[in-house]
Amino acid sequence: MDTASIIAFGYVIASGLFIFGLKLLGSPATARKGNMISAVGMLIAVCVALLDQGIVDYTWIAGGMIAGGLIGAIAARVVAMTSMPEMVALFNGFGGAASLLVGWAALTPDSSTFTLITIVLSILIGGVTLTGSLVAYGKLSEVLGSGAVNFSGQQIVNSLVILGVVAGAVLFCMNPADPTFLYVVIGLALLFGVMAVIPIGGADMPVVISLLNSYSGLAACAAGFAINNNVLIVAGSLVGASGIILTQIMCKAMNRSLSNVLFSGFASVSNEVT
């Protein structure tokens, strides 16, 4: 078997283990085993990815892996049981940031329009996930105030940010050689993540983190399209879809609707006015 087939085969096995692991995570008796199985899938995926023929230099990879692995392991060990949700938010933010960077690094002068669109999507979703998760972390850990932040004209500002993102994305796809629009999209995506989460109160943060978790999956999926990698697409969209369902279930458990949670801050403003 040549290297390319080994890599492809490894990705198939990893995808299967992710699916099986997620399934087992859904019931109490098997949840811990499910997590192990999905971790084994990740190990296989990373090991075969290292066989890639395009890799000529392992120093940077080793540096990133050792630094990231150590930080993650230490953070997971020292965190108090009561601070788990904000730790998950923080990890999630880093995952989003990684997808943003992969999308950015995938940009080459001869990228096709389809690739450019997927690059923009991974930067956009990854950026929103990063800053959104950081704000969620800040609210839960009370580094930031846990209350909803509202100011007059907030909806106008948000609309302008969205318009700016769309305009920046279109201009970037039309002029991929000019990095200005790329930086505009990155900046506005980061800003949008903050704006989307600040109007939501601390008590609703678990639902928001679940939604952002879904986003980080979608960001990985978009990055998969940008670099033509199917295990990223499978794993990313699995997380994206199951994250949305989990968010719905969590909302139902709180007797709320998702839009009620997401727009609760704005609703309280209009209630005060009336």
Partner: peptide, 24 residues
């Protein structure tokens, strides 16, 4: 809910596979 969210979140770190090829 929280463990499932956290377990799914770990899977979204699959981006590492794409990042490896770019870093190398």
């Amino acid at each position: 809910h929280t463990p499932l969210m956290s377990g799914a979140n770990a899977i979204s770190g699959i981006t590492v596979v794409g990042a490896v090829a770019l870093a190398g």
